[in-house]
């Protein structure tokens, strides 16, 4: 599904010189996975996400999405490839001046989908995330969990192959987190969408990810089945992340 090979991203930040954000990242994500990418702040998670969502061009290496190298795409092709990758953000990033239904319909309106089709698809997606009754509300009238549900529905609108979630629950309380993770799991089962979750919370990985990669200081230090990694953490950072959760 997604094959990341020798992905390196170097930022040239003027006086500070070159900053290596990602170094030789190799990751293979299978269709239907709920794949967790975990790491501390500054480990390179955000850059990896930005490379996956095609917002940032890798310095070297490849990101193959369904066999196509997304790193070299430009113009029309890039725009089409982006529709195959739904992104859910920590801060929801909803249009504040549009209703819930208009937000969900937004990606479809970009590709000139017929109005009737948009309406039907919006209805269906809002049913899926359990917010059909809120379709005419504005984001400011919703709770954090509800906003994230809208964002998930919006990300699914174009029927993407992959749902990329950037710290989807970090702004939510524990109960809401549980519900949102449950929703992601349901979506994974029902729609067979591959889900990638980037997070700093071990509990998130533990509850829904079948595979996990640990990223530290710009490199992948560990990758495997969630149970295996949790039972036999090989790297110090994984132990730290696990211990950190225990102490909590």
């Amino acid at each position: 599904m997604i094959q990341i090979e020798k992905l390196t991203k170097v930022f040239n930040s003027g006086e500070a010189g070159e900053v290596v954000a990602l170094k030789d990242i190799d990751l293979h994500i299978n269709r239907g996975d709920i794949f967790g990418i975990i790491g501390m702040s500054g480990a390179g998670k955000s850059t990896l996400l930005r490379c996956l969502s095609m917002l940032e061009t890798p310095t070297s290496g490849t990101v193959l999405l369904d066999g196509e190298d997304t790193a070299t795409l430009k113009g029309r092709k890039l725009i089409e490839a982006r529709r195959n990758m739904g992104v859910v953000f920590q801060g929801y990033n909803l249009l504040m001046q549009k209703t819930v239904a208009q937000n969900v319909a937004f990606p479809l309106s970009l590709s000139k989908t017929p109005k009737a089709e948009i309406a039907a698809r919006t209805e269906e997606l809002l049913q899926l995330v359990g917010l059909a009754d809120k379709k005419d509300n504005y984001p400011s009238q919703l709770s954090g969990g509800q906003k994230q549900r809208v964002a998930i529905a919006r990300a699914l609108a174009t029927n993407p192959l992959v749902l990329l979630c950037d710290e989807p629950t970090s702004a939510l309380d524990s109960l809401t987190t549980k519900a949102v993770l449950q929703l992601l799991q349901d979506i994974n089962h029902k729609l067979n969408v591959t889900i990638i979750i980037i997070t700093h919370e071990m509990s998130v990985v533990k509850s829904i990810c079948n595979r996990v990669a640990v990223i530290d200081e710009s490199r992948i230090v560990e990758c495997g089945q969630t149970e295996t990694v949790f039972e036999n953490p090989a790297s110090d950072i994984t132990k730290l992340l696990l211990g950190y959760e225990v102490n909590e």
Partner: peptide, 15 residues
């Protein structure tokens, strides 16, 4: 405008 919203639109394939 929250720059995240603009970024989200780019992710969705907006020109």
């Amino acid at each position: 405008i929250d720059s995240g919203v603009i970024e989200a639109a780019r992710c969705m394939g907006a020109t």
